[in-house]
Design a protein around this nucleic acid. Structure first.
Lengths: 341, 341
DNA sequence: CTGAAAGCGCTTACAG
DNA sequence: CTGAAAGCGCTTACAG
């Protein structure tokens, strides 16, 4: 049933070497020979063995996919799944398949990512960054295996990373508020030690300063990117003597939690401006539909694929790319009339 | 840098065979020898080559993941991503990694899945079923490679499949309507040639008959599972002389489209009962929050992993499993008072 | 244009 | 308890 190159060679009356050359499209094989061998391979449904090929070739055409960090970086994370999907499509065009490492057998803490990459001899890696990234990731980073990070800073010679320009994220939100005439703006961040959250918070403060808007400590809270935490954070803010009129939340889910809190308060949700971040599906459907800053997941995945591919080919070394976010305007910042023309 | 078994053997002053036995935990190696070799492997960060091991062992500890069909079965499909995530977690416990085939280089029509599985020598496969499944899938199905299908019927000797009990899906919806006193019930299905949609439609008709409820052709439409199609289908239904009072849509997205259509009509959405199917995130957040029939994605993925594992071990052969769905009651079928106690 | 032979890095009877 | 040797299925200089 399962044929080997040897058997094909015998059947065709040629050497293994010749069959191999045909498989690999060498151009120094006679046309008739080639045709004959091809016909036989076809007839017997011959397929070269991957293991044997990679052992002999030292190239695998496989990319490792690693979800780093204990929190927030899972296979089914709504943001990353889109990024990886786009990455898969693009890198697939180059003939790469994707190997997803299972981490369930180990403590993530003990995991040795470099070892596994070496074991599988992957041509390169994409590393998805979560919170509390295990140190072993940085061994991989520093190795000579090309790595592209998404939402994680990598500094190895053969590593690059890509992420949304998080300063710009906050800038888009604050500018939108500013143009709507809002001056009293609050902020709900994600986990305090999250790099993403930190960047968005810093960006928020910077742009507020740019427009000479007051950054009121009373209106600043931190959650964990999930809905419940936004609800709690907003409750906290609503307890303050003076209240904001607008709020930028570092995730749509937290924005939705905040909306719930506001609805439960004496405030009119339609008098309050809210901007979220992510543009998840639900954002379109809630009441009021949520204005949000959208990350270009498609582009991030695509760029990651291009960069990794070029690093594997040795055409480039470490590269850092920041992707521009985009503001999606919906009703949550007041009616159309109030918005800039 | 990258060590081989040969080098380790030389360093330790033993044979390759001994090192190999230590790697593979054979128990006929002297303890001192073992310790010494282990120490050296550790010191040099030695990792056995995957390609060489699989070539020699004929086992790969890798599972192939295939998205079959031209439509609806993508990496980022909201339902399947949860299933695969759960599958990954469970099968990962057994030490399997997942290889996702890229199909971007080929016409899906030309794809030879069996060939690729043989090429990689995967230990087994999970096949995610979409619409318009390519015939090549069934070559794989019929092969001696163990396959577990999700939402696709597989009939090979070494194949099994798993899906939600779609008759039960419709039964839950119709029974709920029945207990709420609804008699005029409409139905919006997915793509007409979709197996899932067919099963739900058949289930719908069966249960309607069971309760002697009239199946009115005027209230039956088909979409494509996406929101827009639900909107269009509902518009169609609303044009009919007599109108239903309740609607079961075969997906939440279509239910949301239908809600939009109803809101745009003269009808009061709160007087109309709607049940969707899937329980996507957005369902909780729309107005009114959507009652829906939920598939147990977690369980489906987990069961798929168990079945596949057992098939690989040769402990079972073809197995078919149907998973019970669950009704999630929210406000879209009237206020709490109207609902069964 | 074709082929003999070494090598890729392991595993596994088998002999001792 | 240890090791020599064959074999897994390919690729690739190299010679002709």
């Amino acid at each position: 049933m399962k044929m080997t190159i040897k058997e094909i060679a015998k059947l065709a009356g040629v050497s293994q070497a010749t069959v191999s050359k045909i498989i690999n499209n060498y151009d120094d094989v006679g046309l008739k020979t080639k045709k004959r061998v091809l016909a036989i391979m076809d007839e017997y449904g011959y397929r070269p063995s991957y293991s044997a090929q990679s052992l002999a070739r030292k190239v695998t055409k496989v990319i490792g996919v690693i979800y780093a960090g204990k929190i927030n970086a899972n296979f089914n994370h709504p943001f990353f799944v889109e990024v990886v999907s786009s990455f898969k499509k693009t890198i697939g065009l180059e003939g790469y398949d994707l190997l997803f490492f299972s981490n369930e057998q180990f403590n993530k803490a003990d995991e040795n990512y470099l070892a596994r990459c070496q074991h599988y001899n992957v041509d390169g890696c994409i590393i998805i960054g979560g919170e509390e990234v295990e140190p072993s990731i940085y061994d991989l980073d520093k190795s000579d295996i090309p790595c592209i990070g998404v939402d994680i800073v990598l500094s190895g010679e053969k590593s690059g990373y890509i992420m949304t320009d998080n300063n710009q994220v906050s800038a888009l939100a604050v500018e939108h508020f500013y143009l709507l005439g809002q001056r009293k703006i609050g902020f709900i961040g994600g986990k305090k030690d999250s790099m993403i959250s930190k960047e968005r918070f810093q960006g928020f403060k910077d742009v507020m300063n740019t427009y000479s808007l007051p950054v009121n400590e009373d209106w600043i809270e931190f959650g964990d990117f999930f809905e419940e935490s936004g609800y709690i954070a907003m409750k906290e803010i609503l307890n303050k003597p003076d209240l904001p009129k607008a709020l930028f939340a570092a995730s749509d889910l937290m924005a939705m939690g905040a909306i719930k809190a506001i609805k439960e308060s004496h405030l009119d949700i339609y008098e309050f401006s809210i901007i979220g971040c992510d543009d998840i599906t639900a954002s379109r459907h809630i009441d009021p539909p949520l204005t949000t800053v959208k990350q270009d997941k498609e582009k991030i995945g695509k760029m990651a694929a291009y960069i990794l591919k070029d690093m594997i080919k040795g055409e480039i070394n470490s590269t850092v790319v920041k992707i521009e976010p985009e503001l999606v305007v919906r009703a949550s910042c007041g009616t159309q009339q109030n918005q800039r023309a």
